[in-house]
């Protein structure tokens, strides 16, 4: 049993703690919203860019751009793993890392990684896997420019044929309570297999394309060279935002649990404090009463 003074100190520290977790919860909640809004804002561009790609790529007799071309068999795979920089976000990082390692086991080909976020990087180091590049310190709502370097690194690996396929491993934001780890193909993009493609999510409401004879300036190849890398960057950008929204949702959840626990603990401790206080008062009263009694007896004996 703690002494009264210890209990009081404990209550104070738990009280401070719950204030901190409450503040963190509020901060995370606002970051989730911002990241979510940013994801939604990318949709119109994604939609239009994909339309453009399909338009150009579907022209019959055209050779596919190398970013659209499948390589068979796949000899090596690159995974872009999105994790958080910091902890305090529940099982967020464990979930996506487990999903990734499970996926890698199935693949059965050599895998290299690009790590976005310190936590994932540390895990990749511990596994002694091949780490191509790492990025960290991104803001909660990164700008497009912040993440384009990630995509450029991935495209470079693909074009240099160091990887035959590139996947994004990140956590999809479903709602504040649920976030789903997903593994999606980034490259090659294949318009002919639209339905099973990662990109299909962005183009669900796309109308069948009207046939139009476009003038291409400067030329189809040049336009594809400009559009495809940009579209790839966009997908990485969307994944980054989804991951950021999920991270903060997970952190908000973890902080809410921590606040709830702290409050429960506070209730128990307050009860304990009151008991201890009453006990102290009772024993003090007994002491005084006992002392008075003893004094009385001593006086009577002296008379």
């Amino acid at each position: 049993m703690e002494t009264l003074r210890e209990i009081r100190r404990h209550i104070r520290s738990i009280g401070n703690l719950s204030q901190v977790t409450k503040a963190l919860e509020a901060v995370s909640a606002s970051k989730v919203q911002k990241a979510q809004a940013a994801v939604l804002a990318t949709r119109p561009y994604a939609h239009r860019a994909w339309e453009l790609i399909v338009n150009i790529a579907c022209v019959r007799g055209e050779k596919f751009h190398s970013l659209l071309t499948h390589r068979e068999p796949v000899h090596s795979v690159l995974i872009v793993l999105f994790t958080s920089d910091r902890g305090l976000c529940g099982a967020y990082n464990q979930n996506i890392i487990r999903a990734t390692t499970d996926y890698v086991e199935q693949l059965g080909v050599p895998v290299s990684y690009i790590a976005v976020g310190r936590r994932g990087r540390d895990v990749i180091w511990r596994m002694q896997a091949d780490l191509v590049a790492e990025f960290h310190g991104l803001p909660a709502v990164p700008s497009f420019v912040d993440v384009s370097a990630i995509a450029r690194t991935a495209i470079e690996e693909f074009l240099q044929e160091r990887a035959d396929a590139i996947f994004l491993a990140y956590t999809d934001f479903i709602n504040l309570m649920r976030q789903q780890p997903v593994i999606k193909r980034l490259l090659p993009l294949t318009p002919s297999r639209l339905e099973e493609q990662a990109v299909s999510e962005y183009v669900v409401d796309m109308q069948p394309l009207g046939v139009a004879e476009y003038i291409y300036e400067p030329g189809k190849a040049e336009i594809m060279n400009a559009v495809l890398p940009r579209f790839t960057e966009l997908q990485v950008y969307q994944a980054t935002l989804e991951a950021s929204a999920s991270e903060h949702a997970a952190r908000r959840m973890a902080m809410r649990n921590a606040t709830d626990n702290a409050e429960e603990l506070l209730r128990d401790l307050t009860l304990m404090r009151n008991k201890a206080r009453q006990q102290a008062i009772t024993s003090e009263l007994l002491d005084i009463a006992g002392g008075a009694e003893a004094l009385e007896q001593a006086l009577q004996a002296a008379r």
């Binding site: 338009n55 139009a212 476009y214 003038i215 291409y216 300036e217 400067p218 336009i223 400009a226």
Partner: peptide
């Protein structure tokens, strides 16, 4: 990419950088 370009209504379908 190849100079200023003016677009008026009824322009031919065009894709450009």
């Amino acid at each position: 990419a190849e100079g200023q370009l003016g677009i008026l209504p009824q322009h031919a379908p065009l894709i450009t950088v």
